[in-house]
C-alpha cells in the first residue's frame, strides 16, 4: 500500500474542504463534507481499531478547522466502525478486497451502495450532533439529503477521473 499517496490525497482533499467547500455559500442546507472520500477510499489492510483511531484523528482535524470539537470525531469513528461490516455484507469474497476499495473489487452496484450508505450515515451524524436534540429534525434531514447528494456526486466524479 502506498502511504505517501494516501497522505498526499488527504492533504489535497482537506485543503479543498477547508478552502473551498466550507467557504461556499450554498444556502443553509448544503454543507458537503468531501473529506470523507479519504476515509471511504482508505485500504482495509490495517486492524479495525487502528482504522477507528485514524477516523478519530481525521475528525479532530476537521473539528479544529470548523469550531465543532467532537462532532466530526464522532461521525468519522462511526463511519470507520461500520465500514468493514458493510464491506463484508456487500462482498462475499473478501480476498478480492485485500488492498484497494475500488470499483473493480466491489462492482458498480456494490461500490455505489457502499459510498451512499456511509456518506449518508456520516452526514446525518454530523448534522444531528450539530443540532444536539430532535427539535430541528426536519432541517437535519433536509441538510443530510442535499449535502449527501453533493458529496456523493463529487466522490463519484473523482473515481470516474481516476479510472480514465
Amino acid at each position: 500500500m502506498d502511504w505517501t499517496k494516501q497522505i498526499i490525497r488527504y492533504v489535497i482533499v482537506m485543503l479543498l474542504q477547508v478552502l473551498l467547500f466550507d467557504r461556499l455559500q450554498l444556502g443553509g442546507v448544503c454543507h458537503p463534507y468531501i473529506y470523507v472520500l479519504c476515509l471511504l477510499m482508505f485500504p482495509i489492510t490495517l486492524p479495525h481499531s487502528v482504522d477507528m483511531l485514524l477516523g478519530a484523528a481525521v475528525g479532530l482535524i476537521m473539528d479544529i478547522c470548523c469550531n465543532s470539537l467532537g462532532i466530526h470525531i464522532a461521525a468519522c469513528v462511526l463511519l470507520m466502525f461500520i465500514r468493514p461490516y458493510l464491506l463484508g455484507a456487500i462482498v462475499n469474497d473478501r480476498d478480492r478486497l485485500n488492498e484497494q476499495i475500488s470499483l473493480r473489487a466491489l462492482g458498480l452496484g456494490g461500490w455505489i451502495e457502499y459510498v451512499v450508505i456511509l456518506v449518508v450515515i456520516h452526514h446525518f451524524a454530523v448534522f444531528q450532533l450539530g443540532a444536539w436534540g430532535w427539535s430541528h429534525i426536519g432541517f437535519v434531514l433536509l441538510s443530510t439529503l442535499v449535502s449527501s447528494i453533493v458529496t456523493i456526486s463529487i466522490i463519484v466524479a473523482y473515481n470516474m477521473l481516476k479510472f480514465k
Binding site: M52, L53, N67, L69, G70, I73, A74, V77
Partner: peptide, 27 residues
C-alpha cells in the same frame, strides 16, 4: 475501542456545545 472513542467525542461535544472553549482546538 469504538465505544471509548464515541464516549470521548460526546463528552467533547457536550462540553463544547454552547461555544468553543479551547483556544488550542479551534480557529
Amino acid at each position: 475501542v469504538f465505544i471509548i472513542l464515541e464516549v470521548a467525542a460526546f463528552m467533547l461535544i457536550s462540553r463544547n456545545n454552547a461555544y468553543p472553549r479551547s483556544s488550542m482546538l479551534s480557529t
